[in-house]
């Protein structure tokens, strides 16, 4: 027996009514995100900007950043950033790209190396040349766009188009808000961030699809219930699942944030935020937006009857392929 019933098993929250608040809120967030992209922009990591990153550990208890700064800004290295990295002993040195020359970057590594001297052990060196970084930008944008398109097509096949569009809008919302976090906090935006965003995309869709599955099933079962009311029933029915899974995933990202090491910190922070946003948007964006996309129970049933001929009910499992008659 469960010790305590933490999660109320049957909620009756009027989520759809709340859309008067949440829609403007989400729209505002998205708008702020877009404005931020244009003004503050991103703290692009070397993957996308080109440049050199060196992580070093001091032999002393604490690295003397001011001395280092003096030594490194002395030369003609150009834009040098020095920061503590996780502990007082560790430093991260970032050198923006000097010119567009690959050879110049190798020279930078040598200069930093000699400036660090014997006091530091170099733990990591990353150098990305200008040709590679522009390719990575292209590939990453391609990955995000392609990801969205493939998902859209898949959802269109499995559901009605309203669901596909709703899921896409929701996912876009989540990605924008996560990107906003990167922009506001000035987190390093690199290849790992792309991985984080695609993962959030996957998570958000996963969450949305679970609720959509239930909505579609209810549409088939209860044709007379008005859509907003029906959406409320469906969201409430899946509410405990949504909260439980969000919690476990959030706990995992939290563990990653606090114990996963410095390199993964940005990634896990973005993931934590993404999980919260993904959960919020499933309930407050994905479901209510269906009302505005003109979804009706007749759409689903008509579609369903057309499908019934060529789809085996058994394979469709719980989607009530054989059930409309019962309602």
């Amino acid at each position: 027996m469960p010790l305590i019933d933490y999660i109320p098993a049957q909620t009756k929250i009027g989520f759809m009514r709340l859309r008067r608040v949440t829609f403007p809120l989400s729209a505002a967030l998205t708008l702020i995100a877009v404005i931020l992209f244009g003004t503050v922009g991103f703290n692009l990591g070397i993957d996308f900007r080109g440049g050199t990153l060196i992580e070093a550990q001091s032999a002393q208890q604490a690295a003397d950043l001011s001395v280092l700064r003096e030594q490194l800004t002395d030369g003609d290295l150009g834009d040098v950033q020095i920061q503590e990295f996780g502990s007082a002993r560790d430093v991260l040195i970032r050198v923006g790209r000097a010119g567009t020359d690959d050879a110049a970057q190798q020279a930078i590594v040598d200069k930093v190396r000699s400036a660090l001297g014997q006091d530091f052990t170099i733990r990591r060196v990353e150098t990305v040349g200008p040709s590679v970084s522009s390719e990575l930008v292209r590939q990453s944008i391609l990955a995000l766009v392609l990801g969205a398109v493939v998902v859209l097509i898949y959802l269109w096949f499995r559901f009605e188009w309203q669901f596909a569009v709703g899921a896409l809008v929701t996912t876009a919302h989540d990605i924008f808000v996560t990107l906003m976090i990167y922009s506001v906090l000035g987190l390093d935006f690199d290849l790992t961030s792309i991985a984080a965003i695609l993962t959030i995309m996957g998570y958000s869709l996963n969450d949305t699809v679970v609720v959509y599955d239930r909505i579609r099933e209810m549409l088939r079962r209860y044709k007379k219930i008005p859509l907003p009311e029906l959406l409320d029933i469906a969201v409430n029915a899946t509410f405990s699942r949504t909260i439980i899974v969000s919690t476990t995933t959030f706990l995992a990202t939290l563990a990653l944030y606090f114990f996963g090491g410095e390199v993964l910190r940005g990634f896990s922070l973005a993931m934590s935020v993404g999980v919260i946003i993904g959960t919020y948007s499933t309930i407050f964006v994905a479901a209510p937006i269906l009302i505005h996309l003109g979804l009706r129970s007749s759409t689903v049933v008509a579609q369903d009857e057309a499908d019934a001929a060529d789809e085996k009910p058994a394979a469709k499992g719980g989607k009530g392929g054989s059930r409309p008659a019962k309602a």
Binding site: Y154, G202, D213, G317, G318
Partner: peptide, 19 residues
């Protein structure tokens, strides 16, 4: 639950494969 699980995981799989 099976249909839901498959739908949910297949959409995630699509993004993972692209990654």
């Amino acid at each position: 639950a099976l249909g839901t699980i498959l739908d949910a995981n297949l959409t995630s799989l699509a993004t993972a494969v692209i990654l």
